[in-house]
């Protein structure tokens, strides 16, 4: 996929791609089980209409702004909208909704589960990777490109199985200096996205009033990255980086760390259960055991 705007504006690109031009990758959660389980305060149709209005306002903010929407489904994810690929500018919403329907069908056909307990997990790692791939492609298209950012409109709980993939995506985004903004529309906080936004210096927000989602989106997430540096946007109250011990899975403040593989334990073990290293005897008579490190949660 090439970027038509780039092609069209090629001669004047250097002037036109000012620092306030954005490429906004929007990841919308289309996990049907989540939308089915959520209470009526925000239905999917209402959510989509809010998002559509938001996308329109982004495109209105700057003529060169580009919006790409990726649907994060239960079994798959896909691009459902790309403002640069669209020929008919008057039917943005229509084309998005059509693609969305197709996507839902496809996602359903991939579904092999007979029934799903609870809201299920959406494939956030997949859509994050797709967004990053798209951004990489834009980066490689030439020296001049809009400044990309990722906005996750996420509601499903975090899928623990995706932890490593998501963390890798986060670090990849951090490396390419792409902020990941997150707007949590579900009932629970997302530890993944909290960390993602923290690490990539994006914004993490869990709106209190889902009725006013559009207002939240426009106030917090609409501004381009350049203007963002002049604004005061909500800051996270604190990210809990406390780790859980490998043995009992309790979140701990203080514990033992394997010197070989950095596994965390809440009490002294003779052998690391992760890497199998054999530890020496802890000096229990010493009141300040040297290998007992304190891990404190960050409060900022």
């Amino acid at each position: 996929m090439t970027i038509p705007t780039k092609k069209k504006m090629a001669p004047a690109a250097s002037k036109l791609y000012a620092d306030d031009v954005s490429l906004l990758m929007v990841l919308i959660d289309t996990n049907p089980f989540f939308w089915n389980s959520i209470n009526t305060s925000l239905s999917f149709s209402k959510f989509i209409s809010n998002v559509l209005a938001f996308l329109n306002s982004i495109l209105l903010l700057n003529q060169l702004n580009q919006v790409v929407v990726i649907a994060t489904g239960y079994n798959s994810c896909d691009y459902i909208f790309d403002s640069s690929a669209l020929q008919n500018h008057n039917q943005k919403g229509e084309s998005l909704l059509q693609k969305l329907e197709e996507f839902v069908d496809k996602d359903e056909s991939l579904c092999r589960d007979d029934s799903v307990d609870g809201p299920g997990f959406s494939l956030l790692s997949g859509s994050l990777s797709m967004a990053l791939c798209y951004i990489q492609k834009v980066f490689r298209s030439g020296p001049l490109h809009p400044r990309p950012r990722i906005l996750c409109l996420h509601g499903s709980p975090d899928g623990p199985g995706q932890y490593v993939a998501i963390m890798n995506a986060i670090f990849s985004a951090q490396r390419s200096m792409v902020p990941i903004d997150s707007c949590i529309i579900g009932a629970q906080h997302s530890a993944f996205l909290q960390q993602a936004s923290y690490i990539t210096s994006g914004i993490y927000l869990k709106p209190q009033l889902l009725d006013g989602l559009f207002q939240y989106l426009t106030t917090v997430f609409a501004t381009d990255l350049h203007s963002r540096s002049f604004l005061q946007l909500p800051k996270p109250v604190g990210v809990d980086f406390r780790a859980a011990c490998f043995c009992h899975k309790n979140t701990i403040d203080m514990g033992y760390i394997c010197s070989v593989c950095l596994s965390i334990f809440c009490k002294h073990h003779k052998k690391c259960s992760t890497c199998g290293s054999v530890f020496g005897q802890a000096q229990t008579q010493d009141s300040s055991t040297p290998d007992r490190k304190r891990k404190t949660s960050v409060d900022n």
Binding site: P32, F33, W35, N36, S37, I38, N39, Y74, V104, D107, E108, C111, D113, D114, S115, V116, D117, G118, P119, P157, D158, P160, Y163, G186, A187, Q188, H189, A191, Q194, D240, R242, A243, A244, K249, N250, T251
Partner: peptide, 30 residues
Amino acid sequence: SQQANALKALGDTGSGVKTLKCNVSPLEAY
């Protein structure tokens, strides 16, 4: 397990408020 803990530590109140519809068939959901 860490996930569950992290969420617990965040002090979510929402999870208790709403009742999740359990065991939804994909057909119904989609």
